[in-house]
């Protein structure tokens, strides 16, 4: 008997009482219950030590250039809108990890943002890129369109495609492992900048 059959047999034997369970109640606020409030998003992002800038699409490139400073190397995913690309940015076309880690910052779009939790979700679309590129650089700059912001977690789940690689990001890398206090800056990017588009 394979372990698969053994375990499934054990679980079936354990359920000999054939419990009948009703459909779970879902009386919590469902997707679509609330409008996304951009001010709530900003408040929650800032609370978890992200920096937020409200800019137009045309101001993105200059804002990023200002954040990384002169000569800063900005990595971008291959499908990032051209308008956003700072001068001199280099695109990920299968770069090795050390090249990615060598970038001063990475600039991406996002798939969804959750106002209530201050969360940005990346789904590895061409304007966001492979997961590795938002992991190794120390600064992550993420551009959000207002239409991508939803009110709550159920709204985000409803919008996302489960089969894509998803990264939910709420503030910069942090830990609660020392005396259960949140400390920013461990293995992931230590700086998260969110550019919220106003157009």
């Amino acid at each position: 008997m394979s372990s698969r059959e053994l375990i499934l047999g054990r679980v079936r034997a354990a359920l000999r009482d054939a419990p009948v369970v009703p459909e779970p109640p879902r009386d919590y606020r469902p997707a679509g219950a609330n409008w996304a409030d951009l001010d709530v998003l900003v408040d929650r992002l800032v609370d978890y030590k992200a920096e937020v800038y409200r800019v137009t699409s045309a101001e993105v490139a200059a804002t990023v250039a200002g954040l990384v400073g002169e000569g800063g190397a900005v990595l971008v995913p291959p499908g990032l809108p051209h308008l956003w690309r700072p001068e001199g940015a280099f695109a990920d076309d299968g770069l090795p990890p050390d090249r990615i880690a060598g970038a001063d910052a990475v600039l991406t779009a996002a798939a969804v943002a959750v106002a209530e939790t201050g969360t940005i979700v990346l789904d590895a679309s061409p304007d966001q890129g492979r997961r590795i590129i938002t992991l190794l650089p120390d600064v992550h700059v993420c551009v959000l369109r207002p239409a991508q912001v939803v009110a709550s977690v159920p709204d985000a789940i409803a919008r996302l495609d489960a089969t894509r690689p998803l990264t939910w990001i709420s503030g910069p890398s942090a830990t609660s492992d020392i005396e259960l206090n949140r400390v920013e800056g461990v293995h992931g990017p230590r700086h998260l900048h969110v550019l919220l588009l106003t157009d």
Binding site: Y48, A162, L166, T167, S170, P172
Partner: peptide
């Protein structure tokens, strides 16, 4: 998939006392 809308609200608030933990990775 929809069940995650429940557990991604329950877990961080009950666990580390955060609205959301800094990172969640999902892969298929």
């Amino acid at each position: 998939w929809r069940d995650l809308e429940v557990f991604l609200q329950l877990l961080p608030r009950a666990s580390t006392g955060e609205r959301m933990n800094p990172y969640t990775t999902m892969w298929t």
